[in-house]
Computed example of a mutant assay.
Amino acid sequence: MDKKRGASMKKKIIILSSCAIFLLSGSVLANSTSKVGKKITAEAPVYLDGQLISDAIITEGSSYSPVRAIAEALGLDVKYETSKEGSVIKLTSPGTKETTNEMIWKKADIEAKIITANLEIQQANEAINHSIEKLKTEKNEEMISFYENRIVESQEKIIKSQQDIITYTNELLELESSN
């Protein structure tokens, strides 16, 4: 019975030793891919267009620079986020979303101005037509003068609104071509 117990104990020791070696080798492998705790062998300045941004460190032949310093020097926005999955550094062009939204609003504003100018033309045409109808039957000199002035003012309003539409259309084309 002692032989069986001794053999069983040897098996347990071998299994435990194997597990320990396996676990330790996994830890060593994990540490070899991580740069944490590695020896810094040198430092080097990082320049962008002749201007010093930051210093980089050299570890095992690879250089590592602060992401934030370089990204911001290039005009990028930097966000550091942590989640259940781990840490993430997100780089985005500044105002990308805002610029797109701003352009959408500008386009909508210009289109609204064009619609308004078209409505003003329509109203001015209606005023002209109404005044012409009134002039056909009007006998009072003051009222005739009023309707004639109304026609002239409405024609001027049409010309201005047409010029505005041309201006707004050019702005819209310019905005769309800058996309």
Rank of each mutant, 00 (worst) to 15 (best):
I89F: 05
L74F: 12
Q122F: 05
I14K: 14
K11H: 05
L135N: 00
I13H: 09
S65H: 03
S34P: 05
L172H: 00
S65R: 01
D2V: 12
E102D: 12
G50S: 12
E141S: 11
I89R: 06
I115M: 07
N31R: 08
K139N: 14
A73T: 05
Y64W: 07
I53W: 09
Q123Y: 12
I58L: 13
E176R: 01
A124F: 09
G86P: 04
I115S: 09
E126F: 10
S8C: 09
S178M: 07
E133G: 01
E81N: 13
K39R: 05
I115F: 10
E126M: 13
S25W: 06
E171M: 07
S65P: 02
Y147G: 00
S8D: 08
K10H: 08
K39P: 02
C19K: 12
S178N: 14
M143G: 01
S62N: 11
L173I: 15
E43R: 04
Q123M: 07
K157C: 05
E85S: 08
N118E: 11
Y64H: 03
V67I: 15
Q162W: 03
K84V: 13
K39W: 00
E98C: 03
S178Q: 07
K35V: 14
K35L: 09
L16P: 01
A124G: 13
L52Q: 13
K134M: 01
A69T: 14
E43G: 03
I58G: 08
L175Q: 02
T169D: 03
N31G: 03
L48M: 14
I110A: 01
A73E: 03
L29I: 14
S87M: 08
N149M: 13
K157R: 12
L172F: 00
I132N: 05
N101G: 09
K12W: 04
A117M: 12
T137G: 07
H130W: 01
T137P: 02
S145W: 00
Q122C: 10
E141W: 02
D55R: 06
R5P: 03
G26P: 00
